[in-house]
Design a protein around this nucleic acid. Structure first.
Lengths: 145, 145
DNA sequence: ATGAAGTGGGCGGAAGTGGTCGACAATGTA
DNA sequence: TACATTGTCGACCACTTCCGCCCACTTCAT
């Protein structure tokens, strides 16, 4: 399982270093990754196996299913299969880099089965614009957290 | 079970000494801990087993459940898996350290299944700004306390 | 006085960063 | 069509920074 936040940087070539704590787990899952996004506001890095799992589920739906069409239209647009280099870095496709404003400071976050990469400032905005409500607190409480 | 309050300090490297009274119990639960926060106002140190229990509950909810999303966005952001060093100290992730103003005097508190770490002054403010209400008293009473 | 608890800090190896070089594709030119 | 030119990207190399690990000292309680 992938969890936790690690500050990182996107260099001029658009590469991000995968934090060492994720490397052993990711290397275990294979060399190839699918880097994509639905909304273009942040990048998601799926180990190929995890992405294929999603594709399997998509394939079960009719090709005229609107959700399938919208999902694929977006993930195809931003998506690209990439390999990690010898230093443990992954290249973010330039379209996605522009759209998600990823240069300089970013956050790499484990999200159980995949990684998220956010422009640091943009992620903070997200947090602030989605305040925790009283109902949320109650839901958290049910988790025992 | 973890209980009681212990004054401690966060050193320049961001490490907190775990009070000796907690050590035997924590060592029994494993070497790894998940250090995180929901609101960023204080740190929580979960033994990995306890955190995985929470993740199990989260996994039962839909990934589009707002509470799940908000919870994970925050705990992923502040969170990091850390190991205790040979002297019984734990490193607080720098993002969380800044956000919760943890340098110098802090309080380490047992909270049954996890530890809380508060900036000392901030914790006192919390106490003073959240007076005990009549409803609280009633809830206390139901505990038989 | 002695041992346990807590604190500070040095050091080496790992992690992270920047950049060069060469292969190859894309485009332009005779 | 053959060849030159340019630009991009992957692979690799070298340097710097950081932090995990360990050692040593101080403080406190009995």
């Amino acid at each position: 399982m992938l969890r936790g936040n690690y500050p990182a940087t996107v260099d001029d070539k658009g590469r991000v270093k995968i934090p060492a704590d994720f490397l052993s787990e990711l290397r275990r899952l294979g060399r190839k990754f699918y880097v994509t996004s639905v909304a273009g506001d942040h990048a998601r890095i799926y180990p190929m196996k995890a992405w294929e799992e999603i594709e399997r589920k998509l394939a079960k739906r009719s090709s005229y299913n609107p959700a399938r069409q919208k999902f694929l239209a977006r993930t195809n647009y931003y998506g690209q299969v990439v390999e990690m280099d010898g230093q443990g870095r992954i290249l973010i496709p330039s379209i996605l880099r522009e759209s998600a404003e990823m240069k300089g400071d970013v956050d790499v976050q484990g999200n159980l089965t995949y990684l998220q990469v956010w422009n640091h400032a943009r992620f903070l905005d997200q947090l602030n614009n989605n305040p925790v409500t009283a109902e949320d607190i109650q839901a958290f409480d049910e988790l025992g957290a």
